[in-house]
Write a protein that binds this DNA or RNA. Sequence first.
RNA 1: GGAAGCUUGGCAGAGCGGUUGAAUGCAACGGUCUUGAAAACCGUCGAGGGUGCGAACUCUCCGUGAGUUCGAAUCUCACAGCUUCCGCCA
Length: 423
Amino acid sequence: MLDINLLRQDIETVKKQLSYKKFDLDIARFNFLELERKNIQVQMEELQAKRNSHSKQIGILKSKQEDASHILTEMTDINNNLQVLEHEFQKNQNELSDFLSHIPNIPDKSVPLGENETQNQEIRRFGVPRDFEFTIKDHVDLGGALDNQIDFELGVKLSGSRFYVLKKQIAKLHRVLAQFMLDTHIDKHGYTEMYVPYIVNKDALFGTGQLPKFEEESFKINKNDTDAYLIATAEIPLTNLIANTILKEEDLPIKMVAHTPCFRSEAGSYGRDTRGMIRVHQFDKVEMVQIVDKDKSNDALEELTHHAESILQALNLPYRVMLLCSGDTGFQSAKTYDLEVWIPSQNTYREISSCSLMTDFQARRMQGRVRKNNKNELVHTLNGSGLAVGRTLVAVIENYQNIDGSITIPEVLRKYMGCDVIR
RNA sequence: GGAAGCUUGGCAGAGCGGUUGAAUGCAACGGUCUUGAAAACCGUCGAGGGUGCGAACUCUCCGUGAGUUCGAAUCUCACAGCUUCCGCCA
């Protein structure tokens, strides 16, 4: 959520900044709601003040056993009017907060202007795609040939399309990858390991910005007759840990990491990436979240991105870092780096991590603050995948495939796997 | 799943219809004293919002939501959470 004062002070500038994100801010609508709010609120508070002082008067008179009937009749009037105003005010507030909660975050100054992913900016590259001297297979064929250790049919049998079952060494490699990522972030990058719920309430989804605009992307379930949601990313539970909290200055920065499954409905992606494990309803991800002082958040984004990159480097997987252009930057984000890993079978780089600076956009929604110089100030939140485990598995399998269909285990994973190759 | 008790400011803990946004203690912050620190003493000390150039004035919030009342932290109802006991069970 944006600071409403920003809209009050300089709405034209905000409109322009948001237009870079392909969002059309309805200025007339905002001005109308604000004017209405002001009118109602001033009247309402005047009456409330009157009610409060009259009530006190009545109390004083009654305690002296004196007559208060003339004030009481006046109060009836006040209360009748007040009821109407309070109702109108509530309606106005609902409309205003609905209006505000649908406005995306403003892109950072350093974000290149652009419409879509074709205008994203490549920042740097690591590694060189391997030159295969044989005809390569994709992970689906490789997994199938390896005794169906990646089994899509079983996934369909149990749950439908976009689900899969892993077995034996591939299942272990999947587990080991997550383990390696967690260990790296905890031991080398100073993150605190967290274990969090996979089912969260509406407040949490609103806090990180998935509600109200993106409800259809989550799996909604029922818990004790109230709405609950499967997490689409550990960003949701991790970031919401600071909801309605006033942190101490020395608490910052908070750096947390968790390995969780992620559930996505993938509504609206029919036909896209239908083959394989790239786009599925359930996948594992190791997620990093940082809660930082607002002055340090830009540096924190660079740091976080490097943390994610270090996993790809350790696995020796070729990748590139893309700075998303304004039009491709997500709703909540002010600035996002995507890490794209080389997928040989697709002869291209595919997203494997997204590292974002949310500035105070989420903190304002969830009221996460820090006490600084005796004043409370919103924190900045950041998150990044470090990494998406399923896609990392795909990348390892495809990049490390051998002519006989076996998979060489990356050096750093061998002590975890207890073997050098899967065959 | 059943029963009882509880839910107040950073923490502890009063208040149980009327000048209460909330006593008191601790913590925190500022100051006096001191070479420095501790102790002692003095002072400050919940959050969010509105009108106004400003001074200032004012509203909302005592788990959440509804209700009773001229007036609710205080009464009623529903829901949630916590604690304890019983039952069941990974």
